[in-house]
Design a protein around this nucleic acid. Sequence first.
DNA 1: TAAAGAAGTTTATTTTATAAACCAAATTAT
DNA 2: ATAATTTGGTTTATAAAATAAACTTCTTTA
Lengths: 101, 101
Amino acid sequence: MSAAFKKLNPLLHSELRLAIMALLMELEEADFSYIKEKTEATSGNLSIQFDKLAEAGYIRIEKGFAGKKPKTTYSITPTGIEAMQEYVDALKSYLIIPHEQ
Amino acid sequence: MSAAFKKLNPLLHSELRLAIMALLMELEEADFSYIKEKTEATSGNLSIQFDKLAEAGYIRIEKGFAGKKPKTTYSITPTGIEAMQEYVDALKSYLIIPHEQ
DNA sequence: TAAAGAAGTTTATTTTATAAACCAAATTAT
DNA sequence: ATAATTTGGTTTATAAAATAAACTTCTTTA
């Protein structure tokens, strides 16, 4: 009845983390440089946000090598996909408000 | 070409301020208690967020009385409406990513 | 071999959000 | 009448977040 706003997952309600998640929703996996380029974020900021997302189980971080250079790839987990879906759903409660009579 | 994310207005990309703005988008005006009830925020938090929105020219704050009791009413301004529209538009760039080929 | 670049991480600083405490006036209870 | 509670907030303090800056290690290029 009352236009209750749904709680926005604070981990996702962050510009940079949302951008990371949005990219990973579309891609099987992505590497650090790719995400850095697309988000235009600094390395440090990215590094920290990756850690937070991984800690929540929203993304998978795989450290490996491309030749001799370190290459870390990031991918979204089922938990992460679900969290994104819930977040988008919650967002709608802020953008489309049911009228009362 | 590149899936550039649009910048999210930081003033609006905040759960409580977004809720306030969403309410004011629907109503001609609202008072403190009404918004407090709908958002379930604390008075202090609300007070601060109102000030920030007013400082940006997104809302109008009118202090008056209802009988002998102080009654402040809040309403959205044209600038605020425009900012909301741009914010929602920017949000879409995070939720709908154009595929590259 | 010295300098520069890639790929990150760590630490420090600033900004934000939130909570807690406070205040004045009005209302209600004793 | 007066004490306690409620209303309608503001101010101050604390916790959390975002961001920037500095640093590290290894690699590649001049």
